[in-house]
């Protein structure tokens, strides 16, 4: 069995989804933790220091390349799997669809992922792109990201899109978190119970904290 065969069968493709998905989950923990510094109520001093460490340091910047690689792999593989799976029903579909046996968000991972992707385009355009452009895409001088957040989140439409993006992320993770561990082979009942509970907790808390960021700026909950 070649490595190519291992990762290109239907089970192998799911392993790729799972590894990249877990990698993205780990990234979210770092991202949400650092951004929560905006609530220090120190006019962004602590947050900007954290952002400066991540943006102006070689190690996180190399990890950033890995993050983009993982994200792109996850997106391309995910969309291709979704299309391929849809084609497997054949030419005629059901007149009455079977919806009782599974949760709607488990069946809608492709749709939820696409909404997250659209949100991510806006998100990168709002923060990552202007900041890296200012740095000349190397380790140059950064913009004041806290001030940028204040500016971006003064627009109600942007705030709504961010909240919807977080909601999609929550449902994506409500299925994805525990599914990823099943995909890498966790079949022990006790562990599955832990991952399912942990997954629902993560899927509610992390997107909620993210969504509170634009809301906090818009409604002036921080100074």
């Amino acid at each position: 069995m070649t490595w190519k065969e291992v990762f290109t069968s239907s089970v192998g493709k799911k392993l790729v989804m799972s590894f990249t998905g877990i990698f993205l989950i780990l990234f979210l923990i770092v991202h949400v933790g650092l951004n929560a510094c905006i609530w220090a109520n120190d006019n962004g001093t602590m947050f900007n220091a954290g952002a400066h460490f991540m943006g102006n340091n070689v190690v996180p910047r190399i990890l950033e390349i890995g993050l983009f690689a993982g994200l792109i792999l996850h997106i391309i593989q995910g969309l291709m799997l979704e299309l391929s799976n849809r084609s497997k029903r054949g030419t005629v579909g059901y007149a009455v669809s079977y919806s009782k046996g599974s949760k709607w968000y488990s069946r809608s991972m492709g749709l939820l992922g696409t909404i997250i992707l659209l949100f991510l385009c806006l998100h990168l355009y709002n923060f990552w792109l202007p900041n890296r452009a200012n740095q000349g895409f190397l380790l140059g001088e950064e913009i004041n990201l806290y001030a940028k957040m204040q500016e971006v989140f003064s627009n109600l439409l942007v705030v709504i899109i961010y909240v919807l993006g977080c909601l999609s992320l929550g449902y994506h993770l409500a299925h994805g978190f525990q599914s990823a561990f099943r995909t890498i082979g966790v079949h022990n009942k006790r562990y599955n119970a832990i991952f399912t509970t942990l997954g629902y907790g993560f899927a509610v808390i992390v997107p909620l904290v993210f969504a509170l960021m634009p809301l906090s700026f818009y409604f002036g909950w921080i100074n």
């Binding site: 239907s10 493709k13 799976n85 009782k100 599974s102 488990s106 069946r107 991972m109 299925h175 525990q178």
Partner: peptide, 12 residues
């Protein structure tokens, strides 16, 4: 056949 996405419809 398609790839599994752990929806659980089969088990149900």
């Amino acid at each position: 056949f398609g790839a599994c996405t752990n929806t659980g419809a089969c088990e149900a």
